[in-house]
C-alpha cells in the first residue's frame, strides 16, 4: 500500500505563488477560486518575531471528515496513495463536505460539484510530481510515498522537525510543514 503525502519546507518557501499559478493552469481552476494558496503567519513582539510562510491545500487526511459525511460516496479515498478525491458525477453539491473540512480546503466549482486539490493524481499516476511541486523555484515541496521508508519524503519527515495543521481536529493530515 502507498500513502501519498507532501512535505513543505517553510524555511525555503518565499510565498512566490508559483504553485498557485501552476495549479490553476494545470487543473483549469476557475477564476475566483483556488485549490492551493499562500498563508503567512507572523507571531511575537518586535524584534523577536517569527514568520512562517507556507503553501496550503487539501491535507488529504487519513481520517477525512469530508469522506465520512458524503451522502453519495462521491468523496472517497483513491486506491492509489489514499488521495482524497471527488467523483464529479456522483456529487450532488450538498456542501456537507465543505462544512466538514477544518481547513476550508474545498469549494463549490461553478459547475456545481465540490472541488479541491487532487495532488494532481493524473500526473502522479504517470510518475510525475504534482504541478505545484514541479514548478517551485525554491524546491520547498517534496511529494512522495510516506509508507516507503526510502522515499525522500519519509527521510525528510524522519530527520526534520515538522508540524501539521490543526492536529487537534484529529484528521491525520498528510501534509507536513518542515520548520
Amino acid at each position: 500500500m502507498s500513502r501519498f503525502g507532501m512535505a513543505i519546507d517553510t524555511v525555503r518557501c518565499v510565498g512566490c505563488m508559483d504553485c498557485v499559478v501552476a495549479c490553476k493552469t494545470e487543473n483549469k481552476v476557475p477564476e475566483g477560486f483556488n485549490r492551493d494558496w499562500i498563508t503567512e503567519e507572523a507571531f511575537g513582539n518586535f524584534p523577536n518575531i517569527q514568520l512562517e510562510i507556507r503553501t496550503e491545500r487539501c491535507n488529504h487526511c487519513e481520517e477525512a471528515p469530508c469522506v465520512d459525511c458524503c451522502p453519495t460516496g462521491a468523496s472517497h479515498y483513491h486506491d492509489t496513495g489514499g488521495v482524497v478525491l471527488v467523483n464529479h458525477n456522483e456529487c450532488i453539491g450538498c456542501k456537507a463536505c465543505v462544512a466538514s473540512c477544518p481547513y476550508d480546503a474545498r469549494f463549490i466549482h461553478p459547475d456545481g460539484y465540490a472541488d479541491k486539490c487532487t495532488f494532481c493524481i493524473h500526473r502522479v499516476e504517470k510518475g510525475e510530481d504534482p504541478a505545484c511541486v514541479s514548478v517551485c523555484p525554491t524546491h520547498c515541496m517534496t511529494f512522495g510515498d510516506l509508507d516507503d521508508p526510502n522515499s525522500k519524503i519519509s527521510k525528510l519527515v524522519k530527520s526534520r522537525k515538522w508540524h501539521v495543521l490543526k492536529p487537534e481536529a484529529g484528521t491525520k493530515p498528510h501534509i507536513y510543514y518542515l520548520t
Binding site: 507571531f43 518586535f46 462544512a99 476550508d104
Partner: peptide
Amino acid sequence: MHELTTTRHNHLIDPVLHVW
C-alpha cells in the same frame, strides 16, 4: 502580535464559511 494572512478568497468560503 499574531497575524495571519492568506491569498485564498474562495467564494462562499472566505472570509468566513457561508455555504448554507
